[in-house]
Design a protein around this nucleic acid. Sequence first.
RNA 1: GCCGGUGUAGCUCAGUGGUAGAGCACUCGAUUCGUAAUCGAGCGGUCGUGAGUUCAAAUCUCAUCACCGGCUCCA
Length: 607
Amino acid sequence: MPNDLPSSAVSVEPISLPKTSESETLKKIRHTTSHVMAMAVQKLFPKAQVTIGPWIENGFYYDFDAPDPFTEKDLKAIKKEMIKIINRKLPVTREEVPRDEAERRIKELGEPYKLEILADLQDPITIYHLGDQWWDLCAGPHLDNTADLNPSAIDLESVAGAYWRGDETKAQLQRIYGTAWETPEQLAEYKRRKEEALRRDHRKLGRELGLFLFSDVVGPGLPLWTPKGTVLRSTLEDFLKQEQLKRGYLPVVTPHIARVDLFKVSGHWQNYKEDMFPMMAEDDAARLAEQGFAMKPMNCPFHIQIYKNELRSYRDLPMRLSEFGTVYRYEQSGELGGLTRVRGFTVDDSHLFVTPDQLADEFMSVVDLILSVFNSLQLKNFKARLSFRDPNSDKYIGSDEAWSKAESAIQKAADALGLNYFLGVGEAAFYGPKLDFIFQDALEREWQLGTVQVDYNLPERFELEYVAEDGSRQRPVMIHRAPFGSLERLVGILIEEYAGDFPLWLAPVQVRLLAVTEEFLPYAKTVAAQMRSLGIRVEVDTSGERLGKMIRNAEKQKIPVMAVIGAKEVEANGLSVRTRASGELGAIAVADVLERLTAAIAQYGTF
RNA sequence: GCCGGUGUAGCUCAGUGGUAGAGCACUCGAUUCGUAAUCGAGCGGUCGUGAGUUCAAAUCUCAUCACCGGCUCCA
């Protein structure tokens, strides 16, 4: 990397930025700051009603019900008011009050949301006061005095709409996000890291590295893949296809659309219609009769048709049908973003049809595959979530019995594998529970990639069967699974994980050849042809620029291996190799470079 | 879909009512060069789109589209 810092820059103690959950001090600071902010807001906007204002990992927020939405301009005034409050050195005092007393006081203030919160609180009810000016229901903990806050370590970041109790059908509140630290240096470091994260943003890198694009004319959420981006995608596809071949998966191909009737049988039409593109019908009569075609939001109903094509024997099972199937989901406009949330994406989908006896083993071998895929991709930071249904919701198909069976099958397998998981109630698919693998992007937002799902319901709805050993007809169980989740989301996460610096085997361009002057271009082209014939992705820089500029350009494109060619190299039939990771390696014979490159690529290693 | 913000050249951005700018990229010319930017010239924008206000709109107003940060939802 170019070193823009003065070389005299001394190394300083790195500033640590703990998460709120890791620091009692930060918990206090952020609780108290959020109260100070709420007090400031109510001073400036007396009609604003308070609701909740918790700390979050990097700061805090507070939700208000305000007659007019806050704008970013309001934040400045609020911050100013907060500083005044801090400077008044108000003591923060805790008070325990009986429930009816709390109720009386809240009614006196006229804060309906607080009343709702109170109803859910366990005794004892605690109130925190800022001097005698303002109080809020709160479990604490808090600082002792507003003067313990450092105004230079506090910042208000953004405003957003948020629904009361996270429920779309309830009132929309105005949320203000802020952050607060022990020292101004920590705040500065926090902001610096946020900017750094922006540099890893896959949307920015995707454009800079020329991997994918969006076109207003094509439509939102519909990525277009450039030649380089397509190399990435297909390298990932090929990698997984090979892994799956080793494990007995059978590739299939199915169309992008199907009759609506198919989705009625599967339940998508009833339970997933909101997420589907509108039906295509020949005319209004057909539309009314719901006789039309729909883009597929999932691949399962199609694979099921292939299963059903013949009478299956227990000897055929497990049957593992796999497809990189592109699906279309009509996501709400505000949910779209980069490659992590799109409207058309490719699922590395497989559906395993198994006997009940095979379920546990198959499930575990799927998880094994998923973990080995993550390992090959050097993805280490993920969480496993058991995504079960919400018992109070009616958005699921199938019997309670089928659900309990599926959920306990997943939990048992996860336990047997020693997976460190957490429970996500209400996160299940409409047809069955899942084991999901969750990753973070550069901005610490969470995204689900890999998933395994156990499904007793679709086999029921499609009346799937196999002939058992005793000649009886039995119902198979389905496992839906996708290690990548979707190619689009995976590539988005990988770009940010690697900061665009792809490992050699994945890099869209693996080698760039740089001729010191144009007279060495013919030699460069000969070497390039040799590399290409070995399957190495190589480019020759024909720009005629100076070497320094060509290296700079290759570095900016994050090409892992550069090879410089001048008189010495031509003379010795060699290459002067420079890698992004290690810099100049000196002169190496062409034959050796070829051998080392092919070996490194084959082993997912580095040059 | 909802709340807030942003749309000026391929990219990054300046320009707040009076004749559209810079750097990089691109093209051409000169230079033939040894490990992160050679020099010069040129090309390039109905200022997201559509209405409106005004003698005059990139700039003010409204609508609309897209993107960004959240909420909801999700691979």
